[in-house]
Design a protein around this nucleic acid. Sequence first.
DNA 1: CAAAATTAAATCGTGCACGATACAAATGTA
DNA 2: TACATTTGTATCGTGCACGATTTAATTTTG
Lengths: 151, 151
Amino acid sequence: MDNQQLKLNNQICFPIYSVSRLITKAYKPFLEEMGLTYPQYLVLLVLWEKDNIAMNKIGEKLLLNTNTLSPLIKRMEKMELLQRKRSDKDERSVFIQLTEKGRGLKNTAIPIPEKLLNTLLTEDITPTEIMLLKDTLNKWSDILLDRQNDK
Amino acid sequence: MDNQQLKLNNQICFPIYSVSRLITKAYKPFLEEMGLTYPQYLVLLVLWEKDNIAMNKIGEKLLLNTNTLSPLIKRMEKMELLQRKRSDKDERSVFIQLTEKGRGLKNTAIPIPEKLLNTLLTEDITPTEIMLLKDTLNKWSDILLDRQNDK
DNA sequence: CAAAATTAAATCGTGCACGATACAAATGTA
DNA sequence: TACATTTGTATCGTGCACGATTTAATTTTG
């Protein structure tokens, strides 16, 4: 039995899980200025690329189920960032449209990627941690590709 | 203004967030057999490496605050996987010890990393998605390292 | 055309995350 | 020895995630 494999840093779960949370935390101050949570920001990223799309399309892009998306988008409607409209053609589906306010937030969002880099350089996440995840992923994707070729 | 930067796949947030959730989902069936959630499993990984440590040390390793860890560990105590004992020397700190049941689960956990590889090969996560995250991280860690050297 | 299967949303319950807050024990300091 | 500060834990409220279930509309099939 190889206990080494059970070590925290050798499993893919831990590095990816913790770095994901660290990145979310790094975004937080910028998103709070806009009054957004992280998943709400992702929804806006989708809508800024393509407005007026069906809710299930947003879910497909973000890999989120409707039971997550439905209340999230309702909250965003209350904030007047978007509007939900049931399709005339198929009353099962709901189309999502940005409001003026929602479109306007895009200008605030444009500088975020650049600001985030500075946060990552000066705060919580050290390049060491990013490198750890990078190494872990390189190792795992190599293993996965190897196995795939064996088939 | 460079709107390209706001595209979903160009931001570090989306790939890392979604792959993290996909990995969690891939673990789920194996953890359910043991009656564990993903963060509970991480706590056990820590304890299997070093038993009888203070709660704040577990939090340090997993980057979790006590307000997350405290109820989580209480649930694990109810499942009789571990015991919480306040230190005699410093009544503020709580030490966590595995029970026989908690130690025993380690044998069930040992084959998980291997099983997970098969899941990743056959199910939800495609190597393409792993590669996307790998590429994104490579890009971002390169940028971070560049900036750091400039200082 | 009616019954069955499929699809899109929504609801419910559980378990994280995490900021804000509270509190008690320990520590530092005048 | 008093008092302020720090530290470790716990509680509360909000917002995801997601499995399971429900409801309603559409599509498929006999």
